[in-house]
Simulated assay, not measured.
Amino acid sequence: MKRYADTTAIVTGAAHGIGRAIARRLAAEGANVAVLDIDGDGADETARILRKDGNRAQAFRTDITDFPALEGTFAEIEANLGPVGLLVNNAAYTDAGALEGMGLDAWHREVDVNLNGTYHCLRAILPRMKERMDGAVVNIASVNGVRYFGNPSYSAAKAGIINLTQSVASEYGKYGIRCNAVLPGSVRTDNVTWTIRQQKDPDIFKKLGRWYALGRVAEPDDIAKAVSFLGSDDAGYITGVALPVDGGLLAGMNVMIGEFVLESDKE
């Protein structure tokens, strides 16, 4: 028995990378998948891949910052694919640099997509889940939400997602709704940001891997597996959790420690 049989799942930001991997993982485990992304062509391609694999999927070009339109999309999803049992808030955006010199538009754009967009999706689906007294939400936050690794506006928004996850878990648990967050570190994807970085330095992922206890950055399916678990009945007594899926990055900085010890031994 597939653990998502007869379940409809929404995955935002599912045109590429992590979102596409999550959509494929959930579909492989039996879910009907609504593929949402502002990149309509990419969303269509993800849905085609899922259907080619024999799964039921539909793509929706969606701007999660536009709440009235989003609410209509969620109603259409339930009409076409059935009641939504799982929402995965994966859509994200980052482009800003250092805090000093950051423009107001850059700050607001990152917060609007990452934090407000997540809230909009929650606002659209929670009343429906509450009415059915059942449902699960998995928010994709980031290690940036608990430590500073650059990208200040993105980091602030991801920290907000972690707290929002706890708020939903606390307030909606009595309605049978669970809400958890996954905190990825660096993930090997083909998004614009990583493509540009790889063009500048083809060995960027190898160099980043030295900071992770497991010696590598994540693959998209590493994140998808964690999402699939947290959204399923296998995690039926888990809510309000912010789960690092980061190869041990937050556990400790072994490279820094090793270099510090070496310097100390010289003294």
Rank of each mutant, 00 (worst) to 15 (best):
D95M: 08
R147Y: 04
A242I: 01
L26P: 06
M129I: 08
D95V: 10
G236Q: 09
D63Y: 09
A224V: 01
L126H: 12
Y119L: 15
K225Q: 11
A27D: 09
V192H: 11
E29T: 09
G176Q: 04
I161T: 03
S167Q: 12
I10Y: 07
I161E: 06
I49H: 06
V143S: 03
N114L: 07
G30E: 02
Y172W: 15
T94A: 07
A136T: 04
G150R: 06
K266D: 10
V255Q: 14
T46Y: 05
A59L: 03
P68N: 05
I140Q: 09
D105G: 09
K2H: 12
A23G: 04
R216D: 02
E219M: 03
T7Q: 14
E267R: 15
L243R: 12
A59Q: 09
L214R: 09
L164D: 06
G209F: 07
A23Q: 07
V143A: 04
I238P: 10
I162M: 15
G30T: 08
R128S: 06
A31F: 07
T239F: 08
F149P: 00
A213F: 04
P184W: 05
K225D: 11
L243T: 12
A224M: 05
A5H: 12
E29P: 07
G103S: 15
A106N: 12
Y175Q: 14
K206S: 11
I64C: 08
G209L: 03
P127L: 08
A96L: 07
D63H: 12
D66H: 13
G258N: 15
D233Q: 14
Q199P: 00
I204P: 01
E71M: 10
G215C: 00
R61A: 15
G258L: 02
L126Y: 11
Y93K: 03
G17I: 03
I10T: 04
A169N: 10
V187M: 00
G97F: 10
I204E: 02
K200H: 08
V245N: 00
E78G: 10
T195V: 01
L250F: 00
N180W: 00
I162Q: 11
E259G: 13
L243F: 08
G85K: 06
S232F: 08
T165N: 14
G17K: 01
T46A: 08
G13T: 05
G236P: 05
G19I: 09
K174C: 14
T193H: 13
E219S: 10
G215T: 02
E29F: 11
F74H: 05
D112I: 02
A169W: 07
A136F: 00
K225V: 13
I223V: 12
N116C: 03
L36T: 09
G135Y: 05
I22H: 08
L87M: 14
P83V: 07
G173N: 10
A79V: 08
G258T: 01
G30S: 09
K225E: 15
F60H: 08
D190L: 08
L26D: 05
L208N: 06
V261W: 09
L70M: 11
E100V: 13
T7N: 13
M133H: 14
G231Y: 06
A28C: 00
E45L: 14
R197H: 00
N139A: 04
H16I: 01
D233F: 01
G135R: 04
T7G: 04
N80T: 15
I77S: 13
Y119H: 03
E76D: 15
E76A: 15
